[in-house]
Design a protein around this nucleic acid. Structure first.
Lengths: 174, 174
DNA sequence: AGTCGATGATTTGGTGGCTAACCATCCGGA
DNA sequence: TCCGGATGGTTAGCCACCAAATCATCGACT
C-alpha cells in the first residue's frame, strides 16, 4: 500500500493551466469562480428558505413586487410584461408563474380596462396574509446573512459588483 | 387623459417596505438583491458563451476538471463522486452529465481497478481538442469581464464575498 | 374603412438541476 | 464466515426556466 500523495488544490491546478494558456488571468478567473460559487450557494439557500412557504424565487418576487406596488400606488395592478421585466424572467415564464399563483389562489387576473391584449394582476387577501406572515422572518434572515459586513463594506461590495457588471458586455461580445 | 405619474423606483418601494417591516435591513437587502441579479446575469452570459461549443456550465466544469487533473497527475482519472463534489452538483446530476458527455464522445468510463462500485472517467482526444480550441477564447472573455477591477479590487471582492459566505449558515438556520 | 407592423400573452418542446428511493459493492465486527 | 452499515452509481419523477412559434389585439398609415 502506498501513502496517498498530498492533495492538489484547485488553486494549484489553476496555476498549471495558466502556464499552458497565457490568456488565463488567474486572479480574474479565481474571482469569477468565487462569485459563481457563492451565487449558486446563495441562490440555493434562498430557494430552500422560500420553499418552506410553498414559493420559488420567481413566485416570491412577483408577490413582493405586487405587494410593494399596491402599498405605494393604491392597487392599480400590474401587467404581466411589467412583472416579467422587474422579475428578470421571460414573458413565457411569467405566464407559467401567474398560472400557478392563480391556481393557488394568490393572485387574480382582471381585464385591463383599456387594452384587451393584456390584463392586470392583483394580490388576493390570502397572498397578503402569506406575505405579512413570512416577510418579517425572511427579512430577518437576509439581515443575518449580511450582518458580517459593515455598512461601508456593503457599499464597497455593491460598487465592485457594479464594476463587474460593466464588464459583462465585453464578456458576451462576438 | 392624465399625464403618467413619475415612475417609482425599486429603491423607493424598498424604503416603503422598510417602514412597514422593521426587520428589513435596507442596505443588506439592497446588497443581496444586487448580488443575486449580477449572479443571474453572469450565469446566463456564461451559459450562452459555452453553448456555442455545445457545452453547459456543468459539462464544461467536468471537462476542465478532468483536463487540469490529467495535466498535473498523469491521467489517473477521477471517479464520479469526486467530479460531483468539485463541480458542486449532486451525484445524480453527475450521472446525467457523464451520460451525455459519453454519448457525445467527450469522455470514457473505465473500470476502477480496485473497487467495482465505481469507475474512472477519462477525457477523449476529441474533448482535449475541443478544450484546447475553446479555452484561449474563454479565458480571454473572463479576463475582459474582470478587467474593470484592479488587482486590489479583486482581492477585496473575493474577501467580501467570503464574508457573505460566512453569513449563509445564519441565513439558513431554522 | 382596411391593412399591416408592433406589442401582448400563451403554447410547445427542451434543458439542467434536484430529491428520494433503489441496487450493487465494500469492509469491519460479531 | 456472514451480516449490516457505509459508500458507490443510477433511476424516476419533479420544478424552474428558456426560446421559438402562435394567436389576439392595437394603432397608425393609406
Amino acid at each position: 500500500m502506498s501513502v496517498s500523495p498530498p492533495p492538489i488544490t484547485r488553486f494549484e491546478r489553476l496555476q498549471r493551466l495558466a502556464k499552458r494558456f497565457p490568456q488565463l488571468d488567474s486572479s480574474g478567473l479565481e474571482t469569477c469562480i468565487t462569485l459563481l460559487r457563492l451565487s449558486n450557494d446563495l441562490s440555493d439557500a434562498y430557494d430552500a428558505s422560500l420553499a418552506r412557504h410553498g414559493l420559488s424565487k420567481g413566485r416570491f418576487t412577483v408577490l413582493v413586487r405586487l405587494y410593494s406596488t399596491s402599498e405605494t400606488e393604491g392597487g392599480r395592478g400590474l401587467i404581466p410584461a411589467e412583472l416579467a421585466e422587474s422579475s428578470c424572467v421571460s414573458r413565457a415564464t411569467m405566464t407559467g408563474l401567474l398560472d400557478t399563483l392563480e391556481k393557488d389562489g394568490l393572485i387574480s387576473r382582471e381585464d385591463h380596462p383599456e387594452d384587451r391584449r393584456m390584463y392586470t394582476v392583483h394580490l388576493t387577501p390570502k397572498a397578503r396574509q402569506l406575505l405579512e406572515g413570512m416577510l418579517p422572518e425572511h427579512y430577518r434572515r437576509v439581515a443575518a446573512l449580511m450582518s458580517p459586513l459593515s455598512e461601508q463594506e456593503r457599499d464597497t461590495l455593491r460598487e465592485l459588483l457594479a464594476k463587474v457588471s460593466t464588464g459583462l458586455p465585453a464578456f458576451r461580445e462576438p
